[in-house]
């Protein structure tokens, strides 16, 4: 840079300015977490053995996992309804969690030995930005904490190699304490804050909303859980709502879908009540482009769709 020195003579000032590239969201995924899909995969980390099952979902996940292998990214950030917090939104704040995760609902299917690496720097940045936006936040620093199975199932199915760090964000239960509409507003604020943090970080991030669509379960289980002759949606109205949501995803009507989400939650007990989809869509600017649909199937009566939003028009696909 040219400057005039104290002597008044022309001089050169060789200062180096380091400009970090702006971080970005490279993919957003709706990734349901029934432990059944991991169970059916028989990975070495999981203790029970299955004869298969839920192929429509698993094959969809395989296709999504292959796409992820073609994308350059640094970290997976998940918002999960199985880390439920009533006092604020919490973020994982330690670099590594090694433990066994036993599903409290389906312990017969999911006893998964995990070794999870966390991008603490990004997690802290998200926590700071969320606090700056007025959201009550907390970093989780207890080394004995057990990472929830929602995070583990979604991340395993998308990246079975576990070769990328993750960040888990808890689900604040604002639906329980206030209403579905308040949840939508708060999750939107969280999404916008998370986007700011990602941009500041300079990192390329995959977002994951870890949940089902309709979420009414059967309260009985087949003797052989993977007996697919027993699997179907809980009732037809759940199915109709799920199809409506998927149709809007295909059409790129995410603003509209988020607007009617409170009604869908009310009607179908949709697991989006945890804020995941709203959070992710807000962070991605409410996409008006088509989602990639990877699969839909019921698991013990719940409706599960795998979908992805690819901001890159050149790599965006029509999958199903």
């Amino acid at each position: 840079m040219k400057a005039t020195g104290p002597s008044g003579r022309f001089s050169l000032d060789w200062s180096v300015s380091r400009v970090m590239a702006k971080g970005e969201i490279v993919l957003g995924c709706l990734a349901p977490h029934p432990p059944h899909v991991v169970y059916a995969e028989n990975p070495e980390q999981n203790e029970p053995f299955a004869e298969g099952g839920w192929e429509a979902l698993r094959w969809g996940y395989h296709r999504l996992a292959r796409k992820l292998k073609t994308i350059d990214y640094d970290c997976i950030v998940t918002l999960t309804p199985h880390w439920q917090t009533y006092v604020g939104t919490h973020f994982l704040g330690l670099e590594r969690f090694q433990n066994i995760s036993v599903d409290p609902i389906f312990p017969n299917l999911f006893r998964f030995h995990h070794d999870i690496k966390v991008d603490v720097e990004l997690s802290e940045l998200m926590c700071e930005e969320a606090a700056e936006a007025g959201i009550v936040t907390k970093m989780m620093r207890n080394p004995d904490f057990r990472v929830d199975y929602g995070t583990i199932v979604s991340c395993h199915m998308m990246n079975p190699d576990w070769d990328k760090p993750v960040v888990t964000i808890s689900s604040n239960r604002s639906t329980h304490y206030y209403s579905n509409e308040v949840m939508n507003d708060q999750a939107t604020a969280l999404g916008e804050a998370v986007l700011k943090a990602i941009e500041k970080s300079g990192k390329k991030v995959v977002l994951v909303a870890s949940h089902s669509l309709s979420h009414r379960h059967f309260v009985t289980e087949a003797p052989l859980p993977e007996d697919m002759s027993r699997e179907h949606i809980y009732n037809h109205s759940q199915y109709v709502w799920d199809m409506k949501a998927i149709d809007m995803m295909r059409k790129g009507e995410m603003r509209e879908l988020i607007d009617i989400l409170p009604e869908m939650i009310e009607q179908t007990m949709a697991e989006a009540e945890g804020g995941g989809l709203t959070w992710m869509m807000a962070a991605m600017g409410m996409p008006d482009y088509p989602a990639e649909i990877y699969g839909y199937q019921s698991v013990i009566g719940t409706g599960n769709a795998i979908a992805a939003w690819d901001p890159n028009e050149t790599t965006r696909e029509i999958v199903l």
């Binding site: 917090t85 919490h90 207890n142 904490f145």
Partner: peptide
């Protein structure tokens, strides 16, 4: 096991 509460993890662990 050692249990940690989802909300009040900062209060400590419960072996």
């Amino acid at each position: 096991f050692t249990h940690v509460d989802d909300d009040f993890h900062f209060l400590g662990s419960m072996p």
